[in-house]
Design a protein around this nucleic acid. Structure first.
Length: 112
DNA sequence: GCGCTGACGCGAT
DNA sequence: CATCGCGCCAGCG
């Protein structure tokens, strides 16, 4: 049931919906895609994703850290891209919107 | 069908 | 704060 096309599309949409200069957690994306608790699915989708137009770099862990271990090639690329968008990264951590007053409501509205 | 693994999350310590 | 433990889901040997 989970990994059908529709689900994939919604995850894609949720990721594309992240405003430039902002970031979101895997769990947030999953929730926004109507798949609460499927953070790992989002991760898997990204790992298999080949679409370059998808802002995959705006997706971080819920704690604001990049999912890759420091030193990993992907890690550097992601951090560079984020900084290029003005995302402040301190000690490998990006400033994330608080969960309770999340980006979901601020940007996508209360229905999210 | 079983168990391991991973671009995860969260409460408890 | 930094860690640990346990829960979660899907793919693969």
């Amino acid at each position: 049931m989970p990994t059908d096309d529709e689900t994939l599309q919604r995850i894609h949409a949720a990721i594309r919906a992240i405003p430039r200069g902002e970031v979101a957690g895997y769990g947030d994306i999953a929730r926004r895609a109507g798949l609460p608790g499927r953070a790992r699915l989002v991760a898997r989708v990204l790992s298999c994703n080949d679409d370059r137009t998808l802002p995959w770099f705006r997706v971080l862990r819920s704690d604001g850290r990049i999912a890759f271990p420091a030193g990993h090639p992907q890690f550097d690329e992601q951090m560079s891209r984020l900084q290029r968008e003005g995302v402040t990264i301190t000690n490998g951590r990006a400033r994330m919107a608080r969960r309770d007053v999340s980006l979901d409501e601020a940007v996508w509205g209360p229905d999210a």
